[in-house]
Amino acid sequence: MEEQQDQLNVQQDQEVLPKLAVPDTAPRDKFNGTAIFDVQNTSIYYGSFRAVTDVSLTVYENEITAFIGPSGCGKTTVLRSLNRMNDLITGARLEGDIHYRGVNLYGKDVSPIAVRRRIGMVFQKANPFPKSIYDNIAYGPRINGIRNKGRLDEIVERSLKQAALWDEVKDRLNKSGLGLSGGQAQRLCIARTLAVEPDVVLMDEPCSALDPIATGRIEDLMQEIKSRYTIVIVTHNMQQATRVSDRTAFYSVLRDEKSDTRTGVLVEYGSTAQIFGDPQDSRTQAYVTGRMG
């Protein structure tokens, strides 16, 4: 019965909330699984300033990938390039290639709006809209054409449950989203992101403004939803990376003595166990053992 229901819902989702529809050219790896993002030799510029140089990595499906590194190493810049949020910054420019499920993310015909529908983002500081909790969550589905109150109710409940916030707010859905505590507000933003059923969830230091208990809740949440989503998280907290992530990318700052410029580079990328247990690069080792950054 439930399966039938699920099938029905799947059908409906495919019709109303247009799911991803790209030919299956996504590279598959027997050991690693589907490659969601394939970043190749990518450098990102803000005007003439090169924020990140020559980054190459692959993000795999249903995994949590962590970007770590000292301040100014470009990890947030790379994260934001994955859902084309850098487009909003005047003068931002990308060289190299980023492929999403085999499609060139920065191709001529690609709409950033469609990209962001599929690749959601949770920000460092929770930014609930000055609307009710219900309207916060319903915002995404509404702009994608869902008007039916029944469906919206369903989506709101489902998203809040996925974000582990339902029990706390189910009796006050029409109260303002601004009245929540920091941890609750951040879970609201996560629920809001999940409501449009993205493929990927990007998180930019989502717990940096939260206390340890709220942080723990969100980390549990990440583990729970990872079977359904692919997550990339930027974090300053190495312990968090070891707790939640499957793979870790370590970035650092490269200083060019001659021209006195700095740029971010990807130093090492591998499974979390390997990065923290057996780092190959001396810089990685210095960072994860606390000697630098």
Binding site: D6, Q14, Y100, A114, R158, Q162
Partner: peptide
């Protein structure tokens, strides 16, 4: 979960879902 995600590999139309038409 009450809903499973649709398999993204199933093509539900042409490959222009990411298309830019502003």
């Amino acid at each position: 979960s009450t809903v499973t995600k649709a398999d993204p590999a199933i093509p539900a139309g042409s490959a222009n879902a990411l298309n830019a038409r502003r």
